[in-house]
Amino acid sequence: MAGGSSTSGARAALMLTAKRFASSLLTLFLVSVVVFTIAQLLPGDAAQEALGQSATAEQVAALRHEMGLDRPAPERYASWLGGMVSGDPGQSMVANLPVSEVISSRLPNSLLLAALSALVAVPVALAIGIGSAMNRGGRLDRALNIATLSMVAVPEFLVATLAVLIFSVKLRWLPSIALVADDMSWGDYLRGAAMPILCLAVVVIAQMARMTRAAVIDQMDRPYVEMAVLKGVPPVRVVLRHIMPNAVAPIVNAMALSLSYLLGGAIIVETIFNYPGLASLMVNAVTSRDMPLLQACAMIFCAAYLILMLIADVTAILANPRLRAQ
């Protein structure tokens, strides 16, 4: 029974994972339709916008033709989507460079920022989440609950402002603007990017800690934990040996879900500290109405979000004992 059924369980889990992956791809495709449609609804068109009021009708028509605006929308969508997939999402209107070039100079910075923020946030959030779950209903738990609940609702720019006030105005430890260059040493980079990392981590920690606490508490209510407690197993051992192995998957799920808060947080944090990342690039694209650049940035953020959701769901599928052991 054991051998044959566990492979069929693995096959079921694989099938579900493949299904979930296909559904993510479909969603990403639909998202691209939505983003493209909204960008096309621009009042007036991009050619008129680029040339200004003084342009003659011929100039506008010529630019429209050059930008391909005289083709029907489905055709333009198809060529845009083809470009996105093959890594050539068009020409940035403001920088007059290929969008791929503009983005590739910024994307690594954002990925590094996100990775370092996650590296800071995950251990702290785990400690807070597990700590307050073990102390459920106690003073520490209630204090942490109110603290994280408040942090979730605080705007990112207040966190950033307070961080600047404390670390660069009063203590003079860190620069208030992230000066980041390609040829910097790691030490200089970390010093320059410390404040954005700190602010992003704070934003994510609150969310992550709340979800971790919920995941651990969900396990604590199960009968096997009650059994272990009644047997007289010490509390720390209950958490480490009995609860944690079962809570790992829900916690990874919670981590992936709350890391999506990095995406929204990065927009404010990168802008306030002048960090040369993708999110501040996107804000510039909105300000200058550089639609090709904006569409490409939006699609990258949506893809990142969908990947995080996919990771969250797949861990949930793999962790489901009914699928593993059927």
């Binding site: 969603t27 990403l28 998202v31 939505v34 983003v35 909204i38 960008a39 609804l41 621009l42 009042p43 999506s260 995406l263 929204g264 927009i267 996107m282 804000v283 694209a285 909105v286 109405r289 639609m291 904006l294 569409q295 939006a298 953020f301 949506c302 979000y305 969908l306 959701m309």
Partner: peptide
């Protein structure tokens, strides 16, 4: 599936 800040930025840019 579109993060809310990204969605609103696209809308602001368009409208």
């Amino acid at each position: 599936s579109i993060p809310s800040k990204i969605f609103s930025l696209v809308l602001v840019a368009a409208f």
